[in-house]
Write a protein that binds this DNA or RNA. Sequence first.
DNA 1: TCTGGGGTCCTAGGACCC
DNA 2: TCTGGGGTCCTAGGACCC
Length: 430
Amino acid sequence: MNRLALVDCNNFFCSCERVFNPALQGKPVVVLSNNDGCIISRSEEAKALGIPMGAPLHEQQQVIRKHDVQVFSSNYTLYGDMSARVMSILREEVPAIEVYSIDEAFLALPLNFDEPMARTLRAKVLQWTGIPVCIGIASTKLLAKLANRHAKKNKLLTGGVFDLSHYWDPDGILADTPTEGLWGVGKNLALRLSKMGIRSALDFQHADPAAIRKSMGVVGERMLRELNGIACLELEEVPPDRKGVMASRSFGSPVESLEELEEALANHVARASEKIRRFGLLATGMEVFLQTNRFNRNEPQYSRGTRVTLDRPTHSTADLMSAARGLLHRIYRAGYRYKKTGIQLTDLVHEEEYQPSLFDQINPGKIDVDKIVDEINRRLGDRKNPVVTRASQGTERASGGSKGWMMKAERHSPHYTTDWNQLPEARAQD
DNA sequence: TCTGGGGTCCTAGGACCC
DNA sequence: TCTGGGGTCCTAGGACCC
């Protein structure tokens, strides 16, 4: 039987901070998101204080002061470096590894790899890097995730290692796992499943494939098979090519003028284009978007993004900047207080694989901004009906390291619009 | 009261993940 | 007053064409 392991670092960002500051051992520690807005990593001590994943920092100030919680801004350079060290140790122990995220990896296991060997591996990672990990072993990725969850939830009992494929009562474990604890099932799908009477992983495992197919599509059917030990998700040793690169930021305080938005956007373009150059990629398309503060229900809400195809692939900051500015001008509406803006570079191609056209060979250099503006006008200016009419369902959005810590509040706002022809004044009246 | 059908492209949205 | 950023995949529906 094929066997896989999922190795997952515990409270990764907090653990990294501890490696470089041993005085933090035993103390509650949290690490913050990009703008120091939310708590995205918590040590066991911080969890025990009841600090939830993804909580806004300002909501936790009392607990933090009272219990002297150590608070850190995130340091992705440090975490990336620690991650590479952990991954290189894992890579030496098994024939194949898929680095799934900064703190997780799937391992293809040799036939003789047993639980004691997993414990040795765990100890080795801890000793060499200072990072504690949990290891789950099973026959498919989905089950390995589940085994890992069990190892982590019952750390005292399991010692952080759990082999589901050799456990005497796998059904018992599945019965104890709510559907929402499954990889790929969030709040919304869990609700849908519970309406079908499916509440545990065991229920799901025995569900009718046709019914699952109908309510969850191919994704659900794939999960069903994985739960039954039929591998549908391959180990991806080589990460697939990126589809797009995004750069976006929230403003500390809302921004109203086009000039200020332009300034922020220039920053994003610089970051995004630098990133694709580092990967040796060229962008063939781009999307610019802006949003008002989705948490503020009392103000008119406006959110719009639009996309353009460039007349030839490029990674030049200057070229991308002029196109981005064109798009921003197109979607900008005066009278709103903007909270976030960003850019996405899309349809990426490898630099060395790109064959410049004869025209480009004769006329190397800048892309034709006039042509881009033409393109924007063709897409947007001449559209007969740019008004978005489809009703939104107003569902909650699950996002972030822990499920459902952010709400898609803008959909609930009476002032929400994606219609870029409607003025805020007109909106405020209804 | 009737008022084609099928295909493609595109945008927006919805769901999930870390 | 403060409430992240970066991804993936799938699907619905309108525009447009033949």
